[in-house]
Amino acid sequence: MGKHLVLRLVAKIFIPLILLFALYVQFHGDYGPGGGFQAGVIFAAAFILYALLFGLDHARTVMPPALLQTVAALGVLLYGGVGVASMLLGGNYLDYSVLAEDPVHGQHLGILLIELGVGLTVASVMMVIFFTFTGRRG
């Protein structure tokens, strides 16, 4: 624990803030700059910071790679699923207007859902890539 004490302390304060900020960016993407892609990347960056400072093994216990791979697939599935759902409700593929009573509301819901899918996939793929690269020793 002696090494990088200052860095670790600062990171302990900052990582929750970064994660919170990622969530804010994710769900506030309709109003300000942001969205699934940005949120996913910020979320992954927070975890990479954690792994760099506290070691890979700790990071692996917090975020097991098997879980990440499942979540990556789930994100794409959610995106495609929204498309199929709108088709089943009588619209075109990925036409969110039919998801709710009035079209604008439906669009809102659809955008939120697919941004969530994008965010899940991007965050978990970035972390998977990081773990596979660093988990491999020479």
């Binding site: 969205g35 892609f37 940005q38 996913g40 990347v41 793929v125 890539i129 596979t132 690269f133 491999r136």
Partner: peptide, 20 residues
């Protein structure tokens, strides 16, 4: 470009994996 940047990182990672 927003999507292209993220796709770019993912493909760069794929290229680096090939190099490894």
């Amino acid at each position: 470009i927003l999507t292209a940047i993220v796709v770019g990182v993912a493909t760069t990672a794929l290229g680096l994996a090939l190099v490894v």
